[in-house]
Amino acid sequence: MIQGLTPLETEALVLSARVAGWSVLICLPAGIAVAWILARRRFPGMWLLDGIVHLPLVLPPVVVGYVLLVLLGRSGLIGGWLHTTFGVTLAFSWQGAAVAAAVMAFPLMVRAVRLSLETMDRGLEDAARTLGAGELRVWMTVTLPLCLPGILTGTILTFARSLGEFGATITFVSNIPGETRTLPLALYSVTQVPGDPVPAIRLALISVAVALLALVVSELMARRMSARLGAGP
């Protein structure tokens, strides 16, 4: 129980943080990998990958939620297999909410990381190679550290986007108290009940506070990073 919050608020806040956290954990490795492919590789059909990655950005979230339900629902193509093989059910569970949030936020992560991969000085990677570094070492010691600002931006955007995810979540995993009722869904629920406006206002303020906190933390980290990388070229 968090001081000053009602059980319902605490539940929604903790659940939101958990969903957003897992969404970030899913998006980070996958997003960096896809961003690298899009930034560095050239292959036929690249436009298709690029398009699919960006779809959640332009599709109505409800459509994304519905597609997830069709694919990942218990009788869905992938969902059925997951259920029979691993006994995992995504539909109507908080794990499903994390997946929905991750899919919706994925393009933001990819764009942020891709941008930093495309703008970094690739000559530095060549310099590392001439110094005897193999591809893995080049990646770990040069590429990744120099992309950290982009990765940080992507992480914050993903986290914030996941906190606010509504349409795909409610379509895919519904609005189950304690399981999939995140902050926005809780807010939606209380606004459906006529009467006292205070619970809705409180939930809205909590959302604002969490978002502001995320922004401040990211700003602090970004400053430390740019001080480290140096202001010069």
């Binding site: 530095l124 310099a127 001439t130 005897g132 120099l146 990388l229 010069g232």
Partner: peptide
């Protein structure tokens, strides 16, 4: 490149900024 045992000094230095 990594196994050619060379040293390469680039025109613009290319020091690792981090």
């Amino acid at each position: 490149t990594a196994r050619r045992n060379l040293g390469y000094v680039f025109q613009e230095g290319r020091l690792f900024p981090h």
